[in-house]
Every structure is written in C-alpha cells, then in structure tokens.
Amino acid sequence: MPRGRPAGVPPIGSYTAVGDSFTEGVGDPGPGGWIGWADRLAALLADRHAEHAPPGSFRYANLAVRGRLLDRIVAEQVPRAVELAPELVTFCAGGNDILRPSGDPDLLAERFEQAVAALRAVVPTVMVCTGFDTRGVPVLGLLRGKIATYNAHIRAVADRYDCPVLDLWSLRAMRDRRAWSEDRLHLSTEGHVRVALRAAQVLGLTPPADPDQPWPPQARPLRSQVRRDNIHWAREHLVPWIGRRLRGESSGDDVLPKRPELVPLELPGAVEA
C-alpha cells in the first residue's frame, strides 16, 4: 500500500505544486489554459477540506513551468515554496534533465535531495514523484535505464525524509497510448486525471475512481496507420523538440507560473478528477 497521511490527521488546508510541464498541466487544456493533475488533486483536497472547514478556505499555488530543468526549479520554485510554507508540497523534477545526454541521475539525485531537505524543514508533507516507465515508447524507451536509476534515488530520498511517493512507474494505466497527448511527451486529459487519482490515494484520500481501472476496448491499429502516425509525430513534435535542444531553447522561456500565490482555490468544476 502507498504511504499516505496517518489516520486521524486533519485534512490538508494548503498545497503548493513545484515542477515542470508535467505539474503545470501541459496536455490537459481548459478554458483559461492548462489544467493538469496538480490542479485536479487540489480540487479533490479542497473537497475533503470543505468537510471540516468553511468553503473556500483551502489555498493552492502552482509554481510549475514547462521546460524547467532541476537546477532552475530548485533555484526559483523551491525557495518560493518554502516562503509560502503550505501543509503540502508536491515536488516533481529532473525529467527534463534525464532527457539530455548530460543528465546524470546520480548527480541529479544529490541536488534533488538538497531541495527535499529544504522543503521538509518547513513543510509537513512533501510528496515526491518517480518517472514513468518508458518501455516500448519510441526514443524515450532508450532512457529507461536512466529513469529507473533516478527513480531508485528518489525512493531512497523519500525514505530518508519520510516523504510519500507518487509512483508513476507502477501506474499501469500510463502504458496505454490514450494516457498521452499527441506529442507523446505530455499526458492527455485522461492521463492527468488518473495521476491525480493516484496522488489522492497516496495522500490517504478515497478517490472517486480507480486510477488503474482498465481502458475501454479499442481496435488494434493497422501497421500502415502506426507508421503514418509515427512519421507525423516525428515531423510535428520530435524534430522541433530536438531543434529547441540544439539551440538551447525551452518551451517555457517566457512562461510564468500560473498560480504564483497561495490563495483560495477557485477553479471550474472541469478540474474535478
């Protein structure tokens, strides 16, 4: 069973999300921008908090920005999260570093641990995230060993600092193509929903649905269609992504956090998982 908050602990009243595009919610569009699993988790936490506190008293901040590398997240977002001092922080970082040839999981883990130590000094609950299992995924499958090594480090850090772990590697629902957006780098809306449900489980909530429930049956695509889809993906997403890396650019160079302040949650009902 995943580690969560012990029975009898009061509901979480404030939450700050730290990370990159995964936590910003890229791939899960909403009326005013990206939604994502962190916003959806915040809605579930707010519902739970409202059972014991006045409506609207739950506070939420999301500092995540797409494309951010670990060092920049640690330099910009972690100090802000410490300053906000919420009851819960989710800290998911390092994935963009692992995608680079220079991304050493051992060195990344050292910097990751320093950030967790800083957060745990003031935040009662810091939930950390493992990376997804990329078995069978074009290109990213080649990085499976690096991701597994980094995951092992994250689990060790979690043990040392008593952090609950959002284990994305074991989330079987993510192995279905429908969990991913067209770019195959970010989750789809349904993928984000399932991550939010798993995160709620880890924190001791009873989510409204099983995050690993089977997907509806669908016809197996023809090989010719798979080839066409792969060519389209490479042209529209993979090549531009490689080009940005070669130019030293990031999709988040001019992007600011979508919820920089820890304020009462007022999000549309669509964020509910």
Rank of each mutant, 00 (worst) to 15 (best):
G131H: 04
R111A: 03
V78H: 01
H237A: 06
R144M: 10
S102K: 09
R135G: 12
E24P: 04
R155G: 01
K258Y: 08
Q201S: 13
W34G: 11
R111H: 14
W169M: 04
W37S: 05
E272H: 15
V239F: 09
F91A: 00
C163V: 07
V78N: 05
L203P: 05
G4D: 09
A200Q: 02
G30D: 12
W215L: 10
P10N: 12
R66H: 04
P216V: 04
D47P: 12
W34S: 14
R80M: 01
A152S: 11
A85T: 07
H186P: 03
V195P: 10
R5W: 00
F91T: 00
W241I: 09
R59K: 09
F22K: 11
L99M: 13
R177P: 11
V18T: 06
A93L: 01
A156S: 09
R3T: 14
G252R: 03
W37Q: 11
L168S: 02
H192I: 03
P101I: 01
G33C: 07
R68E: 09
A109Y: 02
A270G: 14
I35E: 14
A270S: 15
L187C: 13
H232V: 13
S224D: 08
I35C: 14
P211G: 10
A152E: 12
H237G: 03
P240M: 08
A85V: 01
P101W: 02
W37R: 01
P105H: 12
D133T: 08
V82R: 11
P54C: 13
V126L: 10
L41Y: 07
H232E: 13
I231P: 04
L107Y: 10
D212W: 00
L84D: 08
I98H: 04
V193Y: 14
L84T: 03
S57C: 08
A270E: 15
Y60Q: 01
D212Q: 02
R48M: 06
V9F: 09
V122P: 02
L203W: 12
L267F: 06
D47Q: 14
Q201K: 12
I154Q: 01
L256F: 11
A234N: 07
L222I: 11
R178D: 10
A209G: 05
A53N: 11
Q225E: 15
A199V: 05
I231C: 11
L185M: 15
R155W: 04
W169R: 00
A115H: 00
L63E: 06
A118K: 11
Q218S: 15
D28G: 09
P10W: 07
R223G: 14
T149G: 14
P86S: 07
C163K: 00
G141I: 07
G204R: 04
V271S: 12
A75M: 02
V255A: 12
A109G: 03
S14E: 06
R59G: 10
W241N: 09
R223E: 15
E236M: 12
G131L: 10
R220Q: 13
R223C: 07
E249Y: 08
A53W: 08
A199H: 07
R259D: 12
H52M: 10
L41G: 03
A93W: 00
W215S: 05
P79H: 04
L238M: 07
G191Q: 02
T134E: 14
E190T: 11
G95K: 02
E249P: 01
S188F: 06
G145M: 15
S181E: 08
D253P: 08
A50P: 06
S21E: 06
Y60A: 07
M127Q: 14
A273Y: 07
H49P: 04
G13F: 02
V78F: 09
D71H: 13
T16L: 05
